[in-house]
């Protein structure tokens, strides 16, 4: 779908059409609303968290057009026509995503507040063959997600475990 031209005056509410977790959704927002707040306040998709509001912690990570981004630094109006995946869209048909499964198995969290962002980053990096599979590369690629509880060891194990599942899953299908 070709995005339509968007034009909004200050204080004016505009309509933004996007696809969230595969569903077409419509937002009524002013131009200063960021995607993070739109997802939470307008769509009540509260799995995506705010930890800093300045791209400094990664708790708000979502996928826009398949790429992991900080939703706190993207205006909702800039997402017209785009496909967005949040943590609520990771599981399919009631089945946890391999990353979710691995986070559960490896206790890759404590308080759970950074976890949606961690998993969105993990899910993206596992689909990105430009990021090497070794531990050091994964740790670097995951460093945009702060876990103040410090569960990095288990997060790393979970990511690498999910990789095995996803690889074997792919092989199973081929």
């Amino acid at each position: 779908m070709e995005p339509s031209e968007t034009s909004a005056q200050a204080d004016e509410t505009v309509t933004v059409n996007l696809f969230v977790n595969g569903e077409p959704r419509q937002l009524q927002v002013t131009s200063n609303v960021v995607l993070l707040d739109a997802l939470r306040d307008e769509l009540h998709l509260t799995g995506t968290k705010k930890g800093c509001d300045h791209g400094q912690c990664g708790a708000c990570t979502v996928h826009v057009e398949g790429k992991a981004i900080n939703s706190c630094l993207r205006l909702a109006v800039m997402c017209e026509g785009q496909h967005i995946t949040t943590v609520e869209g990771l599981a399919r048909n009631g089945e946890l995503h391999p990353v979710q499964r691995a986070f559960l198995d490896h206790d890759a969290y404590q308080c759970g507040y950074c976890t949606p962002g961690q998993m969105m980053s993990a899910a993206a990096l596992l689909e990105d063959d430009r990021i090497a599979a070794d531990d050091a590369s994964v740790r670097e690629a995951m460093s945009g997600n702060i876990c103040r509880c410090g569960a990095y060891k288990n997060i790393l194990e979970a990511v690498q475990d999910a990789r095995q599942v996803m690889v074997s899953g792919t092989e199973g299908r081929s």
């Binding site: 009540h44 509260t46 799995g47 968290k49 943590v87 946890l96 559960l104 969290y109 759970g112 976890t115």
Partner: peptide, 21 residues
């Protein structure tokens, strides 16, 4: 023992204070 609240945290269902509307 895997956390009994684990799935809530992993699916975005866990209701943190900030999530209340």
């Amino acid at each position: 023992t895997p956390r009994v609240d684990g799935e809530n945290k992993l699916t975005g269902r866990a209701d943190y204070t900030t999530d209340w509307y």
